[in-house]
Design a binder for these strands. Structure first.
Lengths: 333, 333
DNA sequence: AAAGTTTGTACAAACGTTTGTATTATTCTG
DNA sequence: CAGAATAATACAAACGTTTGTACAAACTTT
């Protein structure tokens, strides 16, 4: 393993000069730099990043913490972030929390001990607030939150326009002639889900429809709970649902089938997240698309820029068969 | 930031004793260890992993290189590997190659410079052989390959029983009464795809059917190429396809629709990978399931054990509507 | 009780880089 | 051309840990 000292010895200079030459310091003569670079290449030198990190007190690693890596949304965020960070010379360390608070704390600690240059994260459902994040990271390690965000924490945030998105989805259902529209609402300790619920409510109000709180089904995220809540909603007379997730919407579709309702004629549904399967189902499912790749890019850029603000990445309503009672024109894939 | 020297000073011992105490060396008295541990906890000490890594010459990071993180298969492999590695005290550094040779070399170099404890990888389609892997990693960094494997490289390998799986899938099509069965065959520089093609051929031979090489469509992996090849296959008189991928199978289904063929009555299809959408489509798509999570677990375990052998993770044929011409009994989800 | 063995600590040198300060060589100014 | 200013390099001390060797103390054993 060849070190800067080897190069220095070979050229008759000191390691410090070699170090400065290789990192492009203006304190070294152009001529010397070229000689160093040539010799480094010749000897097959590669900088020992670990030593460098120790000395500098930080690394070129950016930590990303997500609930579950194999969820489409998160793996796309990671992909987006990685595309930016990799170009900027960073590499990405990934941790999963499996939605558990303890795992989140452990992940934060791991990243801190590895002296990461920054942390991009979306907190676990099991975390009710961000105190632990602040406590572990301190004020030395920059934090960027995305999607699931504690807005009282410092640092940049990247979110979707959940309110406007849910508003548009609900309005769309109203326009399609549905009149008793319920919602599958997710977890209220997540501001994203809370905003979607508010958008849903506001759309109903603006449409002159009553907001019936008995049609709001909380904590429904997966297929099973979606099926359960879907049955309840249908039995309560719902003719449509805006679901804050795609998997719960899938459950609701099963519920409609179970009750013998036709989609979209008797029952309309719009999901959220635009999972790959929504476009491939029959009937295809309308869904409020997030833009995870772009969110990842924005999060990475916020980290690089060191800015504190909140970036809003717009959602896009993908109108498909499951919510088109009137006309099937204007469908997007 | 509190260091072992701080603890040593507080207790009147030397840093070396503290280090040994904290790492559980038998050379330190039980009593001393307890005192050190107590003081460490009191002072809020956390080991500086970077310094530790520098001194030890290796880190507790395991690198994972995959073509694309947001592919279901790979994100599940990562999930499986992470579940084992995390429990063993490692964390994972993830790199994507986007199927490009240059990106793969860069990723390997990054991991090497970070002195990772090991590398788990599935090579890019753009890599024709494993010379660069060996060259960058040397013989100091253990390598575990999964799914896409260069069998001439040293180190452990985790693969699916691609031959047997494709054999079973093709046999199944024969049993359903299809007689002119083609295949969408993927890239032949990948041993996995090559084995699937061989399994397909052998199944035809064992069934007394001719192996018609004009029904083998190479390099078809994505939807677009699947559609294209599907049209060709249908026009050449195929009544079924075994596809080495699910997305290309999806394209083939579109091709069948385009030609006005009913599925499965006129045209049968079995994909590979058991992507989430296959079970949710109408008609649902039969698929040869890989077991990515288990493959990730096995790869991680092979790394931890330091063994050299090849682990075979069995595939499972998920029989669904798209290939069941005879009877729709016995369907699995 | 002396010699030998074990046990527990201390000492000090790494690991390879970065960076503040000191020193020497060079150029500029009057 | 002397002196000042600048440029380029050398020196040396970190960063926090690990680990081989040396040493001292506490036990055995004869």
């Amino acid at each position: 393993m060849v070190t800067i000292s080897d190069i220095a010895a070979a050229l008759g200079v000191t390691p410090s000069t070699v170090s400065r030459a290789l990192s492009g310091s203006p304190r070294v003569k152009e001529e010397t730099r070229l000689a160093v670079e040539k010799m480094a290449a010749e000897m097959g030198y590669e900088r020992n990043i670990v030593a460098s990190n120790l000395r500098k007190g930080r690394s070129d690693i950016v930590g990303i913490i997500v609930p579950r890596i194999h969820r489409n949304f998160f793996s796309n965020v990671i992909g987006g972030a990685e595309s930016i960070l990799e170009a900027a010379g960073y590499c990405v360390l990934i941790c999963q929390t499996h939605e558990r608070f303890e795992a989140e704390v452990k992940a934060l600690r791991t990243l801190k001990n590895n002296q990461v240059a920054g942390v991009l994260m979306s907190h676990a459902i099991g975390s009710d607030n961000g105190d632990h994040i602040l406590e572990v990271l301190g004020d030395r390690i920059p934090l960027v939150q995305f999607d699931r965000v504690f807005s009282d924490l410092p640092g940049a945030k990247v979110v979707s326009n959940n309110f406007e998105g849910a508003y548009a989805a609900t309005k769309h259902l109203v326009e399609q002639g549905y009149r008793r529209i319920g919602t599958l609402a997710g977890y209220m300790n997540s501001e994203a889900y809370a905003a979607r619920l508010e958008g849903y409510r506001q759309a109903l109000r603006d449409s002159g429809l009553p907001v019936d709180e008995s049609l709001v089904h909380y904590d429904t995220i997966v297929r099973e709970t979606g099926l359960e809540a879907g049955l309840k909603a249908i039995d309560a007379g719902c003719d449509a649902l805006y679901s804050a997730g795609d998997f719960s919407a899938l459950g609701a579709i099963e519920a409609a089938r179970e009750r013998g309702l036709r989609i979209p004629e008797d029952f309309g549904i719009v999901g959220t997240a635009n999972e790959a399967f929504t476009a491939l189902m029959t009937p295809s499912m309308s869904s409020l698309a997030l833009n995870p790749f772009e969110m990842g890019r924005q999060a990475a850029q916020a980290f690089l820029a060191g800015e504190e603000g909140t970036v809003v990445v717009p959602m896009e309503l993908k109108v498909r068969e499951s919510s088109c009672r009137n006309k099937l024109q204007n469908l997007s894939i």
